[in-house]
Design a protein around this nucleic acid. Structure first.
Lengths: 331, 331
DNA sequence: CAGGAAGCGTGAAACGATTCATGAACGAGC
DNA sequence: GCTCGTTCATGAATCGTTTCACGCTTCCTG
């Protein structure tokens, strides 16, 4: 069929180099081989432009050099950036990534897990929403932001400290009465510790605070009702907001503006994630920055770890505060 | 080694079903087989929970059911959304995606092309920046937004019409003097037709316009200089902006606000791409929306087309205008 | 200088699928 | 009833690696 010039095989290399097949294999895989032989093989490889056939290698060795990343989508900026860094970390180590988009669907999450196991990936990194996800045995499985059990290593930002930090910053910046806006209250996972940290930080700083939890189905406009009431129709209006994500902060900023108030003069806002547009430039709001490249790097190095069962059950990476235009400390 | 329970093979299925190996293969691949045999095989497959081994299949058939997507990253929202839809379109057809992030590096682009060819992908979809990219023969290759030659099919939005549409809208909305802000002037590709369409639209509508082209290296602040001059230090200030991307529009909106003007009251802004945050909700600005799901779907169906050489050299998909808060027609 | 351990290259077998030459089974035609 | 043709299941060969038992060298020791 179409110009299928048969490709160069190890056998061709062996013949060209005048050595045995096994010797070529050893050279290719960096196993110890006599200097003379290695040189001959390397010359032949170069001459014939030989490249290993990944399918054959995978078939025989039962390893695919592929790691699955199970994640809702790449539409949400946090997921998009995480996916990027996971792929970069994998590429650096000679691995490929198999992407599985679940769109938060619990059944799809479970199906993808079986699917990638059948596809014989060498490991799985998952950011999922099914608390009852069945985790396959016998294959390295690392989660991001979801703690299942001590035998399933989890990588996450230090969400609790991030929440605390936000509260402290708002206090420092002169806020008297603040609120925490968040969604997804139905699920307990690592990110839900942001609010816990925030509460802790407020108490510590003696800051008066409100909670506004949107359950999964509620429309975003519920925030608007909350804000209208607590900004305009009260004697002690809010002057600070902590939002569960930057996107939420971005929405909140709009809502506050639409209510005729100024950001950050009247209301200061801190988000979470550290999403920026334009590469290294603007943040969409003042925020608690997650170390996404580190999250990715850590998850990858854990899933590829030689001693998988020796890994710590939960790795929390440090976050930092970043002014970004919605707080008074922004330049 | 670790619980490597040998997996179920076609041979096991054949034995279980009491038929020959070849028969099982035919059933699995949907080739015609006697009813009785098919039923026996299907029963055995179910009983043993057989799944084909992709590596073995790829090795023998020389097809991997994998398509490479070569793209700068998934950090820019447009790329992120495109990647998402490409993956969904591929998954629907039983294909996997191999992601290659180039970060706009021409050498990496070229390296990835060779790499994926060696990895024997069944086709390549590429969004690249190297005008001299060498396109491999003998493998379906579809580009997005970059036209190379009539023999390399390209899928793009109708950028020219989009530019025209933006100009017409600004005219309709009462603008008298407008400008086009864009970057990346050094490269001629499909998106660069946006400005051409815009120019054409302005002339058609009798609208006075300025061009502000940022070459690749320039800092974003050059826009600020341009805007300050054309908004504050002139007798006939601009009252409308068309930006090459939504991100640029988002920046421009900030700059205009920082200059003390109101959006959309004083200056109306239209972007390009149709980026939204929050799924189906907010657009970050009034914009010309690219049909990203269609772009992905089209690119995928083209790259998998049976009659690859019969494809049209350039497919332009229709765009639409979407009010989003930075124009006076927004509710 | 003989004996034996250590080192290392060799090449056949195996991984699990696809493919195709082979021949069995069956029906039609005369 | 016999021949010829068609249909279709069969299973051996093959894809390009990895692996490992085997045996040849080399070199050290006594």
């Amino acid at each position: 069929m179409k110009g299928d010039k048969r490709s160069v095989t190890m056998n061709d290399v062996a013949r060209e180099a005048g050595v045995a097949l096994g010797t070529v294999s050893k050279v290719i895989n960096g196993q110890p081989v006599g200097e003379t032989y290695r040189l001959k093989v390397e010359a032949a490889v170069k001459k014939l432009n030989y490249q290993v056939n990944p399918s054959a290698k995978a078939l025989k060795s039962n390893r695919t050099s592929t790691i699955a990343l199970i994640i809702p989508n790449t539409i949400m900026p946090f997921f998009a950036v995480l996916t990027y860094h996971v792929n970069i970390a994998l590429e650096k180590r000679g691995y490929k990534m198999m992407l599985c988009f679940t769109e938060y669907d619990r059944d799809r999450e479970q199906e993808f897990v079986s699917m990638v196991v059948h596809n014989r990936v060498d490991g799985i990194i998952a950011l999922t929403y099914n608390p009852k996800l069945e985790i396959p045995a016998g294959i390295p499985f690392v989660t991001i932001d979801r703690f299942f059990s001590v035998s399933v290593p989890c990588v996450a930002s230090d969400n609790f400290s991030g929440g605390q930090l936000a509260a402290r910053k708002l206090a420092e910046l002169g806020c008297r009465r603040v609120a925490c806006l968040r969604t997804g209250s139905s699920l307990t996972n690592e990110p839900s510790k942001r609010k816990d940290g925030f509460v802790s930080g407020c108490m510590e700083a003696g800051l008066s605070f409100e909670m506004c939890n949107l359950t999964d189905g509620s429309p975003l406009s519920a925030f608007e009702v909350f804000l209208r009431h607590n900004l305009l129709e009260t004697d002690t209006p809010l002057d600070g907001l902590f939002c569960g994500t930057d996107l939420m902060a971005w929405q909140a900023e709009k809502m506050v503006r639409d209510l005729g108030l100024r950001v950050p003069e009247d209301v200061q806002i801190i988000g979470f994630d550290g999403i920026r547009m334009f590469g290294d430039q603007d943040y969409i709001c003042s925020t608690i920055v997650q170390p996404v490249p580190d999250l990715a790097e850590t998850a990858v190095s854990m899933v590829l770890s030689n001693d998988f069962t020796g890994l710590p059950p939960l790795v929390c990476l440090p976050v930092r505060y970043q002014p970004g235009g919605t707080t008074k400390d922004s330049v």
